[in-house]
């Protein structure tokens, strides 16, 4: 895709956003479960799932931080054109998107306050692949335990220690998405 051509994210925003949100709602309600999130022409290097997450949740009220390789002119133009979300640094963002190494360190994002823990950032973490292998997770939304290929077990444990403050994560790989809210415990 060229840097100048703007692609339309949703051709029928109300219905496409509703369907995409249902996937995200299920993903956040059932951490570790893999869901399919497809149906848009994502600007490289964004995955389809990450692009749909941004289209569904972002607007002029949500500053977005494009981390590392996600910060390209094509992505900037696409995001601004489709959502109107202002671009910002990690300190003031509502959403951040990028690969794990580019998103680090995690302590620079808004973590919420004790009285308003919801005022924390949501990280959209781009992965090469997602699978139900690796780290064993438990917590609200998980029936017993679930295994997930998380990027960094130690960071999750540290994030859980902040509860009810903390970061929520949406892991994306291609057209696959998994929720990783702050309530998740690493076993």
């Amino acid at each position: 895709m060229s840097d100048t051509a703007l692609t339309i994210g949703f051709t029928d925003p109300p219905r496409q956003a509703a369907r995409a949100f249902r996937v995200l709602l299920n993903a956040m309600a059932r951490p570790g479960r893999l869901y399919t999130l497809e149906g848009t022409d994502a600007p490289l290097p964004l995955s389809e799932a990450a692009a749909l997450t941004l289209l569904t949740l972002c607007d002029p009220e949500t500053p977005v931080f494009l981390a590392g390789t996600a910060d390209t002119p094509a992505v900037r133009n696409w995001l601004t054109f489709n959502t109107g979300a202002p671009l910002t640094g990690p300190e003031h963002c509502a959403f951040a998107v990028g690969r794990w190494d580019a998103l680090l360190p995690l302590d620079r994002y808004p973590l919420g306050t004790d009285q308003y823990p919801d005022r924390s950032a949501t990280l959209i973490v781009e992965m090469d692949a997602l699978s139900n292998t690796g780290t064993t997770l438990a917590g609200p939304g998980i029936d017993g335990t679930v295994a997930l290929s998380v990027p960094d077990t130690a960071a999750l444990t540290a994030n859980r220690r902040l509860f009810p403050r903390g970061l929520d994560m949406i892991l994306t790989a291609g057209g696959t998405v998994a929720g990783l809210p702050r309530s998740v415990r690493v076993l």
């Binding site: 925003p13 109300p14 956003a17 509703a18 949100f21 995200l24 709602l25 956040m28 309600a29 569904t56 949740l57 972002c58 607007d59 009220e61 949500t62 509502a94 823990p117 919801d118 924390s120 949501t122 609200p140 939304g141 509860f163 009810p164 929520d168 809210p181 702050r182 309530s183």
Partner: peptide, 21 residues
């Protein structure tokens, strides 16, 4: 409208991440 729904949707996801809050 879509912007209102997005605002509610973001609140719902935060609500699920902090059960009972």
């Amino acid at each position: 409208d879509e912007q209102t729904k997005r605002m509610i949707r973001r609140a719902l996801l935060k609500g699920l991440a902090i059960p009972g809050y």
